[in-house]
Design a protein around this nucleic acid. Structure first.
Lengths: 233, 233, 233, 233
DNA sequence: AATGAATGAGGGTTCATTCAT
DNA sequence: GATGAATGAACCCTCATTCAT
């Protein structure tokens, strides 16, 4: 009996908190904790290379607990993707339709806000995830295309169109100009999640400075006249 | 210069020939065929999700044969990466040092040539691979940074510097401006290998048109005056 | 004799009442409800394929409660078996020792009463269970042999012996003749619990008609003269 | 290297034969060996309680090898059932249609032949299996009904009908009279595979003697006159 | 050199059992 | 007593790797 008590206590100690505390944030908190842990690991190591026990461990629970909340690793993956793509685009579309400044300001705002709300958060991992795993999860790729890519592209298209119609932007190849906005963002995510600084490990990429540089060049490239109002002061 | 380009292109062509031709030069070609098959599958499905038997099958040999040439799946992966990032940068650096046109032309040439020699070939999959698997193969990531990212960055840095020094480009934040060239290329690779399934399945992205659009905007964004010589006719 | 029979039948009836009635006498009835649920499921799916949570659910309690009453699934199984083979043989032996009709009548009565008291009730599942699980529960099989098979065989042996001694039955191979009585009963149980799904799904076997046919043939086969008194009117 | 050699040799010794011998009866023999092992274990312990590693071990191979030949434990189970129900009924039906003796002789012959060809062989385990697992494998139960029960029943029905039409047998309830033939056979299988002697462990049931006793009683019960020709001398 | 049958460690998933509430 | 969240041993199955042929 002494043995069992010791065993239990050492397990508690291992976790760094007592059981009652863990019980308290019980069922409601679990799925979120698991999804967070899963997102981190999937982004870090890929779907196949992530072991479900590891996800559970990072969420501070045992292997079996994971399967109380998600019926399989694949469903966990899907839940991770869905969880992080709550319908933000409706909100954003609204926000941009009410925007009153110049379109250059709008583009700058758009990219900065993207960084704040997505790029700098866990959610950015989803993009890396989808790119790495798209072909292993065709239905999910379709879902992502439908829920993220399409509305995102549409939003930026509208912004560019506004710029052209207002005479701010030059006559762009609209379908492909959107990639001038998207590419720097995707690249930033990749830099963040994969190859580190992408330049050298010791001098990590500063996202703010990176974004400013990209936006400056981008706006100069988009605008009719390089001295457009939206250019940084 | 033509000579070198031809050499590179013919190596690319070599990999594309039909199966019947392959059978004839059995033994010598085996490792190459395996590397090709492996590259395709690793890019498509990721390292962990690719089964070695499948690699062997696609290369037209049996499972056992694969391990005759590569001691393990991991070594195969490393060989795939190493094989496909052969140091062409020395070659390219020289090529660009001898370049005589405007720096805008140089940037345009650089991106086009990259597309022809890397982007459009199987070798582009390596970028996708490294982005997906970097954290599972840290030493390979370091190798890639060392062999590809660093010299590539350095190459573009020099080009940009040339543009600034010659008064063609504005006063750029050099360390970050290189990403304005890299990001569109990385994005194109991603679009080709994964997001292609994402961006739009029915109307796939046209690389030439994409590149033109990106280069136009980029150069306008980099140049002191928007009517720079390098702008497309 | 009537009294005893009534008692047995009323116990059988007890188990068949509806759920609402059950709720009212909560605690005292729990173990019985669990045993009933377990018997049903074990018979239906086998020991290993029955999940203890399912047993609990069918008994209307939670998983934990099951283990409040039975220390393990295996103990539950043993309890199910023990509970359902209560030694009625002493009772029956006496009943038959006081029997006053012909031995043919006795055999017929014996099989009919067995059907009423065992075959038609939940208790019959135990036979199916033991046949299915005997090798996984050797000590239980021994117990079953001891408590059911041996006394049952002995009982029928005596009946047959009585028939022979009274000149009603021919000179039987006593040790094996008992199986002529047992086999049709065992078969009926199997038909009811498993082969029922096999013999014919659309026209299920009618137990009464089945028993009549078996008994008729059996008695004709046992008796010295085919026009024995016990033959059905 | 010494270590490895020792390891290999001791493994060989364990198996009691050298590797080359094992390699020789290779692929062709494996499925049969595995099916045999599986039949034994499924019959002995039930489907769920049988571990696939155990099946492999009994067949003298490793866990993984089992799955080279059968894609899953369930498919193995199905294969076991199918393997042991090759279409014997066509053959038998033919055999009985050409039978020239009395119908009593036919019944006796039928049951003896069943014992020789099925009852005494591994195949008899299938019956026990199906009875134990029918509800866990509904499609398989349907298959078994279709392939075994139905033709078997039909065969015996015809025999009985012949007896009635030739005036040998009394006017039987045909649909249920077949069970008088089946029940003793099913019971024998159960006795063999489950509860041992069903009487006492120490005096195992003698199948020949059992069958003779059952057939004698059965025929006396079926025939118009008890001195039918088919009765044992 | 090439094959592919065989292996067995590894990882996903289930479920009997525990225990804080 | 009753609950059900949590646990982790055990089991099915995969697949990188080996090796006799």
């Amino acid at each position: 009996m002494r043995g069992r008590l010791f065993h239990v206590l050492s397990k508690v100690a291992e976790r760094g908190e007592d059981n009652s505390a863990r019980r308290e944030r019980r069922k409601e908190a679990r799925p979120g904790e698991l999804l967070d842990a899963a997102l981190q690991l999937f982004v870090e190591k890929g779907f196949a290379a992530t072991r479900s026990e590891e996800v559970a461990a990072r969420a501070g629970v045992s292997k079996g607990t994971l399967f109380l909340y998600f019926p399989s690793k694949e469903e966990l993956f899907k839940a991770v993707v869905r969880e992080n793509i709550s319908g933000r685009f409706a909100e954003w579309t609204q926000e941009f339709e009410e925007f009153e400044g110049s379109t250059s300001e709008m583009v700058r705002y758009c990219m900065r806000v993207w960084w704040e709300r997505i790029g700098a958060t866990r959610a950015s991992g989803i993009t890396k995830l989808m790119i790495s795993e798209a072909s292993n999860f065709p239905e999910l790729a379709a879902f992502y295309r439908q829920e993220v890519i399409r509305p995102g592209t549409e939003l930026m298209r509208r912004i560019l169109l506004r710029g052209i119609e207002r005479g701010e932007f030059r006559d762009l190849d609209l379908d492909y100009a959107v990639f001038s906005i998207v590419a720097p963002m995707v690249f930033l995510i990749m830099a963040k999640h994969s190859l580190g600084a992408c330049v050298a490990q010791d001098t990590p990429l500063d996202p703010e400075r990176y974004l400013d540089a990209q936006i400056d060049t981008l706006l100069l490239g988009l605008c009719v006249r390089p001295d457009a109002k939206g250019a940084r002061a």
